[in-house]
Nucleic acid binder design. Structure first.
Length: 703
RNA sequence: GCGCGGUUAGCUCAGUUGGUAGAGCAACCCGUUUACACCGGGAAGGUCGUAGGUUCGAGUCCUACACCGCGCACCA
């Protein structure tokens, strides 16, 4: 018997050694798997951001995907799990800008190439760190196929996809209202903003004969259109297009009356002035009536010269000053202090988003979203849990054209050129003089949306034929609208097929009290401290048992500890079995006494049950049932019963065969969940299947 | 405002097509028996958020409401 068994199970001295065994075996790569395997099973790992340490959420998704991959590998599939690393465009740039800030530097004024190089070094360093952490979680992914979102072929394919979309009329350059973050000085897509409800003072001002309401007086300098509902009897005397002179912030201006049904007669006074440059609704109106648009707030968040004496002042500081001035001029009527409105903020720095009009690249979403919806209608994509299909549909049905331009260096450059009013999407500089290169980069989701295609070597690689479409996309439920639809769209548009048939969504990993982990609250649990203390297998079990898909999880240390105890239980049970079967050779077909036969059948029944549940992605049930069976049937009943039989030498062979067979089966079935300890135990116990000893990772799932 | 999810034992959560409520942890009592005290045995603990409805029968289906969480929203 192995000496190690005499001491308690020691994850620290086991896990690294076992992982190396697996990696050296080459079995993570399906090309090296033994036996004939005609069916492929593929999972694309959501590439972790290469800009910091892994958190508990990563451990959860790695565990889930590893369970699926190991299960299918044991079932004889060409099981492929493709790892990756994400440069994470804006996210990483934000992390790096914080680092610069600490060092008293700023990205503004830096040479873009130098900045890019610095961030690249930073990212590559973190990438290595991240990969090692993924390894430590036991991920059986094929590192030989790993991709980074800035690999040259990925960059090239991303740019080519963009050019194809431009030629197909699906990507266009246009002026639209975009979400502008002053701090980061870039535009952001809808999913990169967060809306919060706040109470803001709502001001009523006298505007000529009208009374107008606003929360944003600082945008009102150039408001020269006053809008009311055509059927509002209160303002019947005013006609569309009528001009009046009104006294305003910096003196009298000429105002034009616009009558349009967008105005809600019930709201405020039923009259509003518009600021097309800084409001989507207003911009729509301006386009409709061909009105002037003028920028009031600069890209740096300060008022422009149009603001007169307020020029150069930040909007926050300008607001009270402007209100004060209007008050002095007798134009302030009243202030409502209880007005609730929704404010959009940058999801990274919480800077208030300023709508601005800007020339940007947009993806025309409607035809693409329709393709995605049709695919779901045809039943090509299933969601787990299924209520997420609704959310998916909602996003596809209420699509807004997608702004893919980012004014940051960290990302894939948009291959486009400008010449006066001309725009060309091309990697090479177009013929002729005077072309200016677009310096913007793609929204990171533009490239990661193509990820299942990229990692299977679309379009001509051999992996594409074998592994695309992939099988399961396992990811966080918050990515149901950020990432999943974009992958579906690109998969259908470029690859001709939906990129996966099943979307499995996991919930958030929260702290022990169920509160969201965040650095500012200081309740972040580092998974590495837990694995260090209790072992990786224990943490994996704690994250899986009872954790239904789509539901958030409260991570309690006690739970992890419980599965550490379980690992030790397995260890000690193994010791008992080995000690009591030293002089025993396990026959191919064991002969059981009646009692043991019944027990043998019970386990077979359980295996049948859990196999069905594995196929339904109910890992939370399987893990719990195996835990329960191992502890309360195998250890508590079967082992205890065997003691008597062995001592009394009554049906001892039956008992010994049962011990070995049950332990074998349980170790195999538990392997996807607790890969390290099961592999270690497997190496120490005798088994009759596969006479030549081999690693547990490639053993067959019990039938 | 709209949408989604949740509300089951002290805590964290399961509960598959409606048929007498489950697990783990914690707490309690007893126990050092040839694996294991990171253990064993035992007992305790819930009118399943509220109110209606369908049904022979509802934690499970329907309706309304309450509270918690999350997402979405261009009413100035």
């Amino acid at each position: 018997m192995d000496e190690k068994l005499l001491k308690p199970y020691d994850p620290k001295n086991t896990e690294e050694r076992i992982y190396k065994l697996w990696e050296d075996s080459g079995f993570f790569n399906p090309d090296n798997l033994p036996g004939e395997r005609d069916k492929a099973f593929t999972i694309v790992m959501p590439p972790p951001n290469a800009n910091g340490d892994l958190h508990a959420g990563h451990t959860l998704f790695i565990t889930l995907e590893d369970i699926m991959t190991r299960y299918k590998r044991m079932q004889g599939y060409k099981a492929l799990w493709i790892p990756g690393a994400d440069h994470a465009g804006f996210e990483t740039q934000v992390v790096y800008e914080k680092k610069l800030e600490k060092e008293g530097r700023s990205r503004f004024g830096m040479d873009p190439e130098d900045l890019y190089k610095e961030i690249l070094d930073f990212t590559l360093f973190n990438k290595k760190n991240m990969e090692n952490q993924v390894r430590s979680m036991g991920a059986s992914c094929d590192w030989s196929r790993e991709k980074f979102t800035l690999d040259p072929d990925v960059v090239e394919k991303t740019q080519k996809a963009f050019i194809k979309m431009w030629k197909d009329g699906l990507a266009y350059r246009g002026k639209r209202t975009i979400n502008w973050c002053f701090k980061h000085q870039t535009s952001l897509s809808e999913v990169e903003t967060e809306s919060t409800e706040e109470v803001s003072p709502f001001y009523y001002f006298k505007y000529g004969p009208f009374e107008i309401g606003t929360v944003r007086p600082e945008t009102k300098f150039a408001d020269k259109y006053v809008v009311m509902h055509p059927e509002d009897t209160r303002y019947a005397e005013y006609t569309h297009g009528q001009k009046l002179i009104v006294e305003w912030i910096n003196g009298p201006i000429e105002a034009t009356v616009i009558k349009d049904a967008v105005v809600d007669m019930e709201f405020g006074t039923g009259v509003m002035t518009i600021t097309p440059w800084h409001s989507q609704v207003d911009y729509e109106l301006a386009k409709k009536y061909n009105l002037d648009t003028e920028q009031i707030i600069g890209w740096d968040g300060k008022l422009l010269p149009v603001a007169g004496e307020f020029a150069g002042i930040k909007i926050k500081e300008a607001r009270p000053k402007i209100v004060e001035k209007l008050k002095e001029k007798g134009l302030l009527i009243k202030v409502d202090g209880n007005y609730k409105n929704v404010i959009k903020k940058c999801y990274k720095c919480a800077t208030v988003i300023e709508p601005q009009i800007k020339d940007q690249w947009f993806v025309k979403m409607e035809p693409l979203a329709k393709m995605a919806l049709d695919s779901v209608d045809r039943g090509e994509i299933k969601f787990i849990p299924d209520n997420y299909e609704k959310i998916f549909r909602y996003w596809m049905e209420n699509n807004i054209d997608w702004n893919i331009s980012r004014q940051i260096v960290w990302g894939i450059n948009i291959p486009a050129w400008f010449h006066d009013d001309e725009v060309v999407a091309s990697i090479e500089k177009p013929d002729g003089e005077g072309w200016i290169k677009d310096t913007d980069t793609f929204d990171t989701w533009f490239s990661s949306g193509q990820w299942p295609l990229m990692v299977t070597d679309f379009p001509e690689g051999k992996d594409f034929n074998t592994y695309y479409p992939t099988d399961v996309m396992e990811t966080g439920h918050d990515l149901i609208f950020k990432w999943v639809p974009r992958m579906v769209i690109f998969g259908l548009y470029l690859g001709g097929k939906a990129p996966f048939h099943t979307v499995y969504l996991h919930g958030l990993v929260n702290d022990a009290k169920g509160k969201k982990m965040s650095k500012s609250k200081g309740n972040v649990v580092n998974p590495l401290t837990l694995t260090d203390k209790f072992g990786t297998d224990a943490l994996r079990m704690a994250l899986i048992v009872g954790n239904t898909p789509g539901t958030d999880l409260a991570l309690q240390e006690d739970k992890v500890k419980a599965y550490k105890n379980f690992a030790n239980k397995m260890w000690n049970a193994t010791r008992f079995v080995l000690e009591n079967t030293k002089d025993f050779t396990l026959p191919e077909n064991a002969e059981y006494d009646e009692e043991d036969k019944k027990t043998d059948e019970e386990l077979k029944e359980l295996v049948k049950e859990i196999t069905a549940e594995m196929d339904e992605y109910k890992f939370y049930l399987v893990a719990e049932k195996l835990y329960h069976y191992f502890w309360h049937s195998f250890a508590d009943i079967i082992i205890e019963r065997s003691k008597k039989k062995i001592i009394e030498n009554r049906n001892a062979d039956s008992a010994k065969a049962l011990l070995l067979n049950q332990l074998n089966t349980l170790v195999v079935a538990l392997h996807p969940f607790m890969p390290f300890i099961t592999e270690e135990i497997w190496s120490m116990i005798p088994h009759h299947e596969n006479k030549q000893k081999n690693l547990l990772i490639i053993q067959s799932w019990p039938k």
